[in-house]
Design a protein around this nucleic acid. Structure first.
Length: 234
DNA sequence: TTATGGATTAGCT
DNA sequence: GCTAATCCATAAA
């Protein structure tokens, strides 16, 4: 299966995802270097969540890039959000959430999975956004290798917080506290100019406390959103 | 020091 | 649809 098509100029070569069906499935290598600035994250997590939909999460492994478009996120607030890790105050684990905006907060869950968040709001104020699903764009073979799955099932690569972390090789040891606003890092967020047509907001998935707050944001109709079809309702 | 349950996933019924 | 797997942060004692 062809996973990437390079044209004459490598810096502006166009990348075509195998899904190939939506405009969100393309990007350019040049645009992957356009990192979101610190200020982008220095806002309420709900605003950052909306803003992150359609942006691209980029991982660099040596000289190879892995990238996926953000199609589903959840906002986690501070003390007023019982489901947030920050709800009961600052600890060694959640310290990044209380720090400056734009840094990776990674936690280990259910004995099996890592989940990636980005810190929001100024230093001293807790808040974050959980990445729940990506649409694979670049480095699909590396993703499949990391996930130990077949390339034929693209949804299995990055549809779900634990899955996308595994596909990009994200671990707490490697990435917790990492600056996500710099391409000098090996993990960052890029703006390639794509704008989602329609965004939906729903209840968050997999929590018991504060379960009714509408803090899950997703790109309407995107097939890489996690969970069942019935979950993708407002 | 011990107990509890979780921002999940994969595999089976 | 249901649940085991499997670690560890946090709360309780």
């Amino acid at each position: 299966m062809k996973i990437a098509k390079r044209m004459a100029e490598p810096h502006i070569s166009r990348v075509q995802s195998p899904s190939g069906l939506t405009s969100s499935a393309t990007t350019t290598f040049r645009n992957l270097r356009n990192a979101l600035p610190r200020e982008f994250f220095d806002r309420d997590p709900r605003e950052v969540s909306r803003g992150l939909l359609g942006k691209v999460l980029v991982r660099r492994n040596g000289r190879k890039l892995i990238a996926g478009r953000v199609v589903e996120v959840e906002a986690y607030l501070g003390a007023e959000d019982a489901a947030a890790h920050a709800a009961s105050g600052k600890t060694a684990r959640n310290a990044v959430l209380f720090g400056p905006p734009g840094y990776a907060y990674i936690y280990f869950i259910y004995g099996n999975h890592f989940c990636l968040n980005v810190s929001t709001l100024p230093d001293g104020i807790a808040g974050g956004v959980l990445f729940r699903a990506l649409e694979p764009l670049v480095g699909l073979e590396q993703m499949a290798l990391a996930r130990d799955t077949e390339l034929g099932d693209l949804r299995a690569l990055t549809s779900g917080p634990g899955r996308l972390a595994e596909a990009l090789g994200i671990t707490r040891e490697r990435d917790n506290g990492k600056d996500l606003t710099s391409t000098r890092s090996d993990l960052w967020l890029a703006d390639d100019g794509f704008v989602p047509e329609k965004v939906l907001v729903t209840k968050r998935i997999g929590i018991t406390k504060a379960a009714d707050m509408p803090l899950r944001y997703l790109i309407a109709g995107n097939r890489f959103v996690s969970g069942r079809k019935s979950d993708a309702k407002p």
